[in-house]
Simulated scan of single mutants.
Amino acid sequence: MKCPYCSSDNTRVIDSRPADDNYSIRRRRLCDDCGKRFTTYEKVETIPLIVIKKDNNREQYDRAKVEAGILRACHKRPVSVDLISQLVDTVEVDIFSREEKEISSSEIGEIVMNRLQELDPVAYVRFASVYREFKDVNTFMDELKKILDN
């Protein structure tokens, strides 16, 4: 592992433990050349998941895209970055536990919406308004009524 400070290959692991998500290992490393410490995360390599988009194009699953959509929905809401990260982890567990090689973007969107509804109703409505492409105020109001009835 290269040191991010001096680019030396002369580093060693000084501590290793499961990360918060229990799906990766957190390693504290020490550079023997510059003496600085840094953290790395090791994850199990999984079979690439292909996402089928609405236009039937296929692309490899990208965690950053899911996270970006959730971050936009939670903008200026009282939702911590840790909670968002946990939500993305939970969504990924749901997606990868299906053990399918392909998944539609609509299925991913539904999973995210279900999780967001539990986390923050306003973020849920924001995400749903973009994801479901509300055409007019009436469809928006129908979605709000569903939330208020729960």
Score class of each variant (00 low, 15 high):
Q60T: 15
I147E: 06
R26N: 10
E99P: 01
Y61D: 00
Q60S: 14
E110F: 12
K36E: 01
K53W: 01
E45R: 09
N57G: 13
V125A: 07
I47L: 12
H75N: 09
Y23Q: 13
R98G: 11
V81S: 14
D20G: 15
K65Q: 06
Y5E: 12
Q86F: 03
V125K: 11
E118H: 14
V130L: 12
L83V: 03
R27V: 10
R115D: 02
P18G: 10
I52V: 12
E102H: 07
D15H: 13
N114D: 15
S104Q: 00
G69E: 13
M1V: 00
G109H: 06
E92M: 03
V13F: 10
P18D: 10
N22T: 06
T40C: 13
C74E: 05
R132I: 04
T11G: 03
G35N: 09
I103C: 01
R98N: 09
F96Q: 04
C74W: 05
L116F: 11
Q117A: 08
C74N: 08
C31D: 09
I50W: 08
L119P: 09
A123E: 02
C3S: 12
D9L: 15
G69N: 13
A68P: 10
Q86P: 00
R28K: 12
K43V: 08
D136F: 03
S97T: 01
R37P: 08
S7T: 14
R28E: 07
R115G: 01
D33Y: 15
P18R: 13
E99W: 02
D15M: 12
K54E: 05
A73C: 06
R27C: 06
A64F: 08
R63C: 00
L148S: 07
C6V: 09
E102F: 07
R27N: 07
E133I: 00
V125Y: 11
V125H: 09
F140T: 04
A68S: 10
S104W: 01
I14E: 08
I84L: 09
N114H: 14
A19E: 10
R17L: 11
D142N: 11
I52Q: 06
T40M: 10
I14H: 07
T11I: 06
E45S: 11
S106D: 04
K43D: 12
S85T: 04
I52P: 04
P18H: 12
M113E: 02
S104F: 04
K53I: 01
V112P: 03
N57D: 10
C34I: 14
E143N: 00
R12A: 14
N150D: 13
E102I: 07
E100W: 01
L83P: 00
E100P: 01
R29Q: 10
S8D: 15
D142P: 05
D20M: 11
V130W: 14
E92C: 04
R58N: 07
K43H: 14
R72Q: 13
K135P: 00
G35V: 07
K146N: 02
C34W: 15
S7M: 14
P121Y: 11
D62C: 05
K65C: 03
R27L: 08
V91F: 09
R58M: 06
F134L: 00
N138K: 14
Y131S: 12
N57C: 07
S80Q: 02
P18W: 10
V122I: 00
K101D: 09
I103Q: 00
E118C: 12
A64M: 08
S16E: 13
V91C: 07
